[in-house]
Computed example of a mutant assay.
Amino acid sequence: MSHSRWDTYKAKRLREMEADAQPHAEYEQAGRDLELGDQLRAIRMRRGLSQKIVAERSGMSQPALSRIEGGGGIPDIATLLRLGAAMAVRFRVELVVDDDITEIEPLTVHHRRLENA
């Protein structure tokens, strides 16, 4: 998906989410998926890597990586580790336990460059 088409698609999904008076778990999950996909794409692009190269290095198909970057779902921890290694970054995933959960916070992926990369 080209950058301008992606921006249009993302804006449409976010508008749909905001237009719904009652929040739905599916919309909230879609928002988190989009955010993670945006973060992964931004890291890949800052590193000057194509989807094809990152996909090959991480042992996945380019369409699978495109789907993740497009908000098509949150990858499991093993996949995140492979993607990080492919982009020479290390991800830290923070999990917080709160007995009084009133709102679900989006998954945030922090990254830092690996030394000797």
Rank of each mutant, 00 (worst) to 15 (best):
G84V: 08
K12L: 09
E105Y: 02
M17S: 13
E115V: 12
S50E: 12
R90F: 01
G59A: 10
A42N: 08
M17L: 13
R44N: 07
L49S: 04
L34A: 04
L36C: 11
Q51I: 05
D38T: 04
A55Q: 04
I43F: 08
D20E: 14
L95V: 13
M45E: 15
D33T: 05
R82C: 09
Q22I: 14
A78K: 10
H3D: 12
H110V: 05
L40Y: 05
K10P: 00
E28L: 15
S66P: 06
V109R: 03
M17I: 11
A11D: 09
S50P: 08
A42Q: 12
Q22N: 13
G84D: 03
R47I: 00
L114V: 14
H3C: 00
D38I: 02
L49K: 07
S4P: 00
I101G: 01
D7M: 13
Q39M: 11
Q22V: 15
E69H: 11
D76R: 11
L65V: 07
K10H: 06
I74D: 00
A78F: 08
G84S: 06
P106L: 01
S50H: 07
L80T: 00
H3T: 09
T8Y: 07
Q29C: 00
G70F: 00
E16P: 02
R44E: 08
A42E: 14
P23C: 02
H24K: 14
V93M: 13
Y27L: 11
Q22T: 15
D33A: 12
R32C: 05
R82E: 12
E115F: 04
T79Y: 02
P106I: 01
S50K: 08
V54Q: 10
R90S: 12
R41I: 01
Q22F: 09
A86P: 01
V89I: 10
V89E: 03
I53V: 14
E115C: 06
I68H: 00
D33K: 03
R92D: 09
Q62F: 05
T79I: 09
D76A: 12
S61E: 10
I104C: 05
I74E: 03
R13G: 00
L95T: 09
T79H: 05
R92N: 11
A21F: 07
F91V: 06
M17W: 07
L114M: 15
V109N: 02
H3R: 13
L14F: 06
